[in-house]
Design a protein around this nucleic acid. Structure first.
Lengths: 206, 206
DNA sequence: GTCTATATAAGGATAGAC
DNA sequence: GTCTATCCTTATATAGAC
């Protein structure tokens, strides 16, 4: 994470991701960050200009990738003649899972993302909505097509509940702790699988 | 909220509840708070000793009440011969709803509670677990009795998802905005009703 | 690009007069 | 109980040497 194989800038991004995931944005100071990354306190401002912009860049680095994967998965799912609700939901959930087990800091990133939605920071929500809102809208449309019996209001209620479940599950807040004999990859896969079934049941109940 | 009908101490509690709900704990400064409550900056320390202890007291004021209502509702539900899963879940959800529409600051409190669970603050979680953890354990037991076909692991997964939905819904983060023609009370009632159906579907799916 | 040093502001907390 | 004034710490940000 903090290896010399990374440039100062990347070390800052990596460590910021980790600290933001663990302590939140407001509670993470640049001093903590620069100490952990083993760089000078002035480096943050040199490379990113401000703390707010650093936060944006930590998101951007992974969200560009995540959004592309989700859209690609969605298009693939929609390209077959009869797409199931489960496949659409999977196109949303699976890429987040991939990211979280592929990279070193992927898990931290997903926790950080969950935190961003829980903290109701207007500035941050604006940034996310501006840059990645179109992805959510595409999915909402595709899901609605899979459960056309729900009216718009009812659909939004249930998507909201699912968003909560997903956020919570990804942030690993809750009761579920990974068993010692289960690898992190398997734990993620299992989470996605169970969440998928749960979400389908919730969306399709009359 | 900030009326002279309230003592300095109560004004601080009320305003803190509101600010914590809106901006979070770390991001709310005592200066913001005392300005809003229209009391002197030194009053926080005089009445509460520290910011951390103020946070605890804001929780305690309402959680003592909420926990009692939940336990009472649970016992009532369990006292009938054949209790349904829906009734047990309602005993958990309804009291939170009542609180949030009864008091002036009830809605803010519920948002604050959601935030507390999303922020992974160890100190705060410890306080909540120490003082109110037994309530959650009672409910987990009662719910398990209603869906005995689920093994312990599976039950915990699904309770985790529901906790996420509940937290999210109560914090009013998501897509759902209250319609202009719906009162806040009706909006809460509707949320509880829909969440209840969603939760039952998720818990009982095979 | 990276450092030291520092500007400047804001934070929590407290002492002591009233 | 409430005020003013202030201490001490920490925060973000920047200027200027190397």
């Amino acid at each position: 994470m903090n290896s010399l194989a990374f440039s100062t800038k990347d070390r800052l991004l990596n460590c910021a991701e980790q600290l933001f995931a663990e302590h939140g944005f407001a509670s993470t100071s640049l001093r903590q960050l620069t100490a952990l990354a083993d760089v000078n306190i002035a480096a943050v401002n040199y490379h990113f200009g401000s703390k707010d912009n650093l936060i944006n860049e930590v998101f951007r680095r992974r969200l560009d990738d995540l959004s592309q994967r989700r859209m690609r998965a969605l298009q693939e799912a929609l390209s077959v003649s009869s797409v199931s609700l489960e496949q659409v939901l999977a196109a949303f959930i699976q890429p987040a899972l991939e990211i979280s087990i592929e990279h070193e800091g992927g898990a931290a990133f997903v926790r950080m993302l969950a935190r961003a939605y829980a903290e109701k920071n207007e500035r941050l929500r604006q940034f996310l909505s501006d840059n990645y809102g179109h992805v959510l809208r595409e999915f909402a449309r595709a899901i609605h097509a899979s459960v056309p019996q729900l009216d718009r209001q009812e659909l939004y209620w249930r998507l909201d509940f699912i968003a909560g479940s997903l956020t919570y599950a990804m942030a690993d807040f809750g009761l579920i702790r990974r068993q010692a004999n289960v690898s992190e990859q398997d734990h993620c896969r299992l989470t996605a699988e169970k969440l998928l079934r749960f979400a389908v049941a919730g969306l399709t109940t009359p």
